[in-house]
Structures are given as C-alpha cells and as structure tokens.
Amino acid sequence: MSEKQVEANVPVKIMSFNIAHGLGMDGRVNLEKTALVIEGADADIIALQEVDRYFSSRSSFVDQVAWLGGRLGMYTAFGANLDMDPVRTGHPRRQYGNAILSKYPIKYVENHPLTPVPSDFGNNEQRGVLEVVVEMKGNLIHVFNTHLALKEEELKVSIDELLSLTKQCQLPHVLLGDFNAPPDHEGIGRLNRSLTDAFLKVKKGDAYTYPTRYSNPITGESYKPATRIDYIFSDDQLQAVGAAAIETAVSDHLPISADFILETAKTPVLPKAPSALQKI
C-alpha cells in the first residue's frame, strides 16, 4: 500500500452495542430488530458484545456473527470467550463472545483471553478482548472490543491488561465495549488518564446506557437508564466530534456511537502476526 492511497482527515463513525444475543426487553429474541438498529446508526465499525454462535436454543443455534454480517453486508470478526462442545457430534462448537462488524476490510484479528479471578459467588465467566485492524481509505485503525466482569478484583486486573494492550499500539486506536463500571469507578479513571472518553470529550458524559428505557405491559414496571457502563475510548490520533446513546428496547443496553476525525495519516504498518492470528 503506497502513501498516496492514504487519506487524511477521514471521518469515522464507531458504534458499541451489547446485543444480549438479540433478546429484546419484550422477552423475545429478534435479530432482525438488532440489525435494524445497527443499520440505522450507519456506523463504519460496530463492536458487539454478548453474541451467540451456534450457542444454544435461546438463539436457535444461529451463527449470529454470520447472520448479521450477511444481513448488513459487512466484514466480520469474532472472539469466542466461551467455547464448548456441540450438543451433537459433528455439529459446530457452541460459542459466545464479542464480535466486530465493519464496512471496510478487516486485516488482522486476535482474541485475547483476560485473566479470570475465580470466586465462590457470582459468575466466573471467561472474559476477553477482541482485537482487529480495519483498513479504511488507506488508513489502518486498531479496534479493541471487550465485555468486562462485574467482580471488582477482576475488573482491576482486566483494566491493567487492557491498558497494557493499548499502550503497545502505534496505530490510531479505540477501546470500547461494556465495561460494567460507572464513570466514577477507579478503573474508568485510569483509562481516562491514558485514553479519551468520546462522551466526555463532547460533553455528553451523562448519556446513560443501562438499563434500557422500557415499560412492561404485563407487570406495569418501568425502567429507565440509570448509569453509564458502555464506553468508547480513543487515542489522540482520533478526535471525537460527536457522540450519542441510541434509544431502543431491542437489548437491555442502549447502543452508543461516536463520530471521529482521523486527523493524522501515517504510513500503515500491521502488527506482527502472532501464532494465534485468525486468518482473514
């Protein structure tokens, strides 16, 4: 790739969405509704959390990554944090984790398991961060998509590992996903000292993302967003110029998006491919 092909001052729209395997607040799984929300946001790169791939009957054993990629006409990448034997011999493995959709080619994919901190109480689910590099108009953009644990001790360890990963990155990069921590959490503060929270940059830090606004027609219970636990962070090569939480009831989280300007075009250099690199 020659430098003549590299454009500067490129607008980039990036989205993060915990889709809860397509489970809406009405108690029904409807991946088409999820796709419509993603389509309506018109983002260039979309990071998804809680994605099923042949996982179970709850999502009809659908490969949600392939389904969404085909429905939206996008490139896809997936990181399985849960990887289990199939129900029947010869069937695909049952997987659950994070995915990335992109309008532009994905050149590099690696899934990093985060260090678990087991406890006798709560969920000991394996967590991870999906790393991809997207080629957009000659520029390479590094994307790190994660879904962190609720346990305080594990959050601390995971954030240390996320900072270690992003500090090694020389390309323009974003770190985004469901962090399961509010803005005043110590770990979020550490992330803000190394990266820029797009919502704070454009003065929309009160854009709450959880839970979704919803009124249950049967019980009469009402819910409304009460905290912000979903984030989009970037380095200084991506300048945030807009951010929004998107009102919808197709998941228990609101999706978020941020508009950036990639101001500095650099000669793109891919990371050194590890042995675990998924071939594209």
Rank of each mutant, 00 (worst) to 15 (best):
V87T: 11
E247I: 09
T115N: 04
E221M: 12
T264R: 11
G189D: 00
D230C: 05
Y104P: 00
E39N: 08
T76D: 08
L150R: 05
R71V: 06
V133D: 10
G128V: 10
S59E: 12
G73S: 09
L254S: 07
N111A: 02
N81V: 08
F121W: 15
D236N: 15
G128I: 09
I232M: 05
D197E: 15
V87S: 06
E50W: 10
A243G: 08
P11M: 06
I232D: 04
K151D: 07
R213K: 14
E32C: 13
Q237W: 02
E3V: 15
G73E: 10
T219A: 14
I14P: 09
M74H: 11
I19P: 06
I106D: 01
D26S: 02
A226S: 13
A66C: 05
A35Q: 04
N9Q: 14
E32A: 13
E110M: 14
L171W: 01
P255L: 02
M84L: 05
K151L: 13
I256A: 03
G90T: 06
H21G: 02
P118K: 01
D42Q: 07
D236P: 14
D52S: 01
V12R: 11
V250S: 02
L277H: 13
K272H: 08
A66Q: 07
G122T: 15
L140I: 02
P172H: 09
E110F: 14
R127W: 12
I141H: 02
N81W: 03
V6F: 03
K103N: 03
L175T: 05
L238D: 11
R228E: 08
N81Q: 09
Y96I: 09
E247L: 09
K224I: 07
V6P: 09
P268A: 13
G189F: 03
S257A: 08
V87M: 09
P116R: 10
E154V: 06
V6C: 09
V51Y: 05
V12K: 03
K224G: 07
E32W: 15
S194L: 12
R193C: 04
P105I: 12
F260C: 08
K167N: 14
D26K: 05
N98A: 09
K272D: 01
I45F: 15
D52L: 07
G138A: 11
K33C: 15
Q49N: 10
R190C: 11
F260L: 02
T146Q: 05
A99R: 11
L148P: 00
I246W: 01
F78S: 06
V174D: 00
G122Y: 13
H21E: 08
I246V: 15
A47D: 08
G220P: 09
G187K: 00
P86F: 02
I256N: 14
Y104S: 03
T264I: 14
V174K: 01
L48H: 00
G205F: 01
A258K: 03
G69I: 00
M25Y: 12
I229K: 06
E7Y: 11
V143R: 03
L114K: 00
T34D: 07
S60Q: 04
S16F: 10
E263Y: 14
H21A: 09
E3Q: 15
I46N: 00
Y223I: 02
D252L: 01
G70D: 10
V37F: 04
D42R: 11
C169T: 14
K224C: 11
R228K: 14
M25L: 12
L200A: 14
Y96S: 15
I218T: 13
L171D: 03
R190W: 04
V51C: 09
E7A: 10
